[in-house]
Structure formats: C-alpha cells, structure tokens
Design a protein around this nucleic acid. Structure first.
Lengths: 210, 210
DNA sequence: GTCTATATTTCGATAGAC
DNA sequence: GTCTATCGAAATATAGAC
C-alpha cells in the first residue's frame, strides 16, 4: 500500500482541512475585511458547512489571527534575502525582488496585513513591538554602516525601509487600481518584470548605487 | 441682527449636521472598515441618536459613498500642484509635498480610500475608470515629454506615479506601524519634515534631477 | 427636524443527531 | 469528525410620537 493510497490519518485530515479553511479565509478577509467577512462566506468558499469551521477554529477571531500570522511568517522569511548580501546594490535589489514576488504570489495576504495595520493592529501589535521592531533596527544599522562606509548615498535608513515596503506592497494592496489603469487587465508576466525593474532602478538610483 | 446671531436656516442646519456626521463616519470607517463600522458607533462619535443619521443619509452605504467621494475630491485638488510646474524637479517635488501634507492632515480619509480600493472599489469603480484614468494618462504624458526632452531619467511614467502614491500614502495608511517603530509616539513636526525630505530626495535622485 | 421604541435580518456560535 | 437546526446577540432600518 503506497503513501498515496493509504487512508489519511487523523492529524493529516486536520492539517489538510485547516489549510483549506485558511486559504479560503485569507481570500475572504482580503476581499471583505474582518468585519465584512462572514463565517458563512468562508465556509462556502472552502466547500464546507459553517459548523465545520468552528470545529477547527473556535472563533472567527482565532481564524483571522492565524491568517495574519501566516503572512507575517512569509514576510520574515523573505527578509533573509537582504541579510546575506555583500553590499547595498545586491542586498536592497534582492529584497525588492523578493517583496515584489510576494506581492504577486500572495496578494490576499498582503491586503489582510495592510488592513490589520490600518485598523491599529488589534491582533498583531505584539509582533510589531518585538519581531518587526528588532528586524527594522537591525536592517537600519546595516544600511547606516553602508552609508558610513561611503557605499551608498546618505539617506535616513528608516524612511528608505518604509519606501521599500510601501512601493512593493502597493502592487498587491492597490492591485485593483493598477489593473483598472491597465485597461482592466491584470499585469502580464512582461508587465510584472517592467514593474520590478522600474522599482529597482528608481530606488537603487535614489540611493546612489547605479 | 448679525449673521452669527441669526438662527440657522434649515439648509444651514442640514449642512452643519451632514458635515458633523461625515467627519465622524470618516473616522469610524477608517478605524473599523466598512463592515466593522456600525451606525451606532458613528452616531455616538457624532453625539447624535442613531435614527438621526438615517434622516440625513438613507443607508450606511450612502454615508460611506459620500465619505469616499470627499476624499477623492481632496486628492484631485492636490493634483493641481503638479500641473503648474515648469519642470520635473519642481512639479514632482511639489506633488510629493502636497501628498505628504494630505497624509498628515487626512489620515482617516486615506485609509478609507485604501480600504475601498483593496476591496475592489465597489462604490468608486466608475471614478477609477473615468476621472483617475484620465488624470493618470495626462500626467504620464507630461512625464514622458520631460523624459523625451532629456530633463529627467528614462523611467516608466506609470510606475513612477505608483511609487509616488505608494510612498506618500504609506505615511497615512501604515501610520500605526510607523508610530510603533517610532517608540509608540506619533511623528513630531521635525520627523514629518525629515520624512518629506527623505521621500523627495530619494525620488528626485531616482529620476535623476538632483 | 428629532428621537424612542421596535421590526426585521443577519451573524457568530452551539447543541445534538449521525 | 461531520452537519442540520437553532439560539441569542447585534446590526440596519423604520414607524410614529413629539
């Protein structure tokens, strides 16, 4: 009996269902907001009865909290692309690439994150004050060192980081507006490459490394 | 009898009450989202009984629609700062100044707009397809002309506009995150000036005019 | 124009059979 | 573990006295 044929164990079923629900929830929370989302909508999108959601996630808030945390993990993972670089051009360039790729692959997650922060971070505030604050201070120090070594222009590291976040996430959070201004069509592969190149060129020239 | 002493006319009362309700609604919609906002919350913030809101605005959606349109008007008005400029440095610099000022003075409005677009622009889609599209095409042509005349670096005008919107609005939409990373304190006058200068320096150098 | 009381709907959550 | 039926709370909206 192969692994594929073997009936799923209890824990496998749980993992599978939870992932299915989380995926549906991410989409609904992104499209309707926390207040606008309903457990019924999420259940319908997941193809499960509503009561089933409450079996896996006690409350709507528990489900939402898990969605937000998942996105934060993806962010943190991508942040590593900046750490391994030898200098500003490679480091910041790679970070832009990674963030743009997340905007393309996880637009729903980005919107949920944006909505959460806009509403005062009711469930993720502790992460902002610990993990994000530590990461930001660490990266700001790296950028400041590059500046002090004369390897890039003298800019406030924090405002540079804000610009990196704002610009890359804009392609996910305001994707609907961009699509409308693109004649109602989603960006093609080529247009995504143009976007990535434009952002990288503008910012890398802005910090004086090209 | 002076104008100040004269009892308000019906239309004056209406204007006054509508403005009061709209101001309260903008704040509540920004902080809770459309779905999370309740007429009761808005009524309490305006200091009026809930039924009074329904007298001036038939439905919650009508009230929301008016809030979104008000913000859009502010945006359009600020857009003029770019039109009267002689060249890219003045035009784009003035536009950044104006947008940063709006982010500071109207953070609630900016968030309501962001939320509306993130959810697919259910009430403002027609404006995106007409007014915003026309404005964007017009500005893109101006930027393209500056490029063709060799007055700034060769960048995709649309992606430059997206970067301008993203970066300036980030200070309103993600103000809570920025405040948290600032030690939990709102940006001071001096820090707002630093932010504005940082954004302008980065972008103007990015387009090769400084 | 204002406001209390209430009708109506919808949602989150749960009980309990299978 | 799954799902139907339903409860109780909360929301939008309105009726009708003032």
């Amino acid at each position: 009996m192969t692994a594929a044929e073997r009936p799923l164990r209890r824990t496998d079923i749980r993992r599978e269902r939870e992932a299915l629900i989380l995926q549906a929830a991410e989409k609904v929370f992104a499209e309707a907001g926390f207040g606008g989302a309903t457990m019924q909508l999420i259940a319908d999108m997941a193809g499960l009865p509503k009561a089933n959601l409450h079996y896996y996630f006690a409350t709507k808030e528990d489900l939402y909290r898990q969605v937000v945390r998942n996105i934060f993990e993806i962010w943190l993972h991508a942040a590593g692309s900046m750490d391994e670089a030898a200098g500003p051009a490679e480091g910041i360039g790679a970070y832009i690439d990674a963030k743009m790729e997340i905007s393309r692959r996880h637009p729903h997650g980005s919107k949920v994150w944006a909505s959460e922060v806009m509403h005062g971070a009711p469930v993720i505030q502790d992460y902002l004050e610990t993990t994000l604050r530590d990461w930001t201070e660490g990266r700001a120090r790296v950028i400041q060192r590059w500046i002090d070594e004369g390897r890039m222009a003298r800019v406030d590291p924090r405002h540079l980081l804000y610009m990196l976040w704002a610009t890359t996430q804009h392609y996910a959070d305001f994707g609907h507006q961009i699509e409308t201004l693109n004649g109602g069509k989603p960006l093609s592969d080529r247009q995504w490459k143009d976007a990535k190149d434009s952002v990288k060129t503008l910012i890398l020239r802005g910090i004086g490394v090209i």
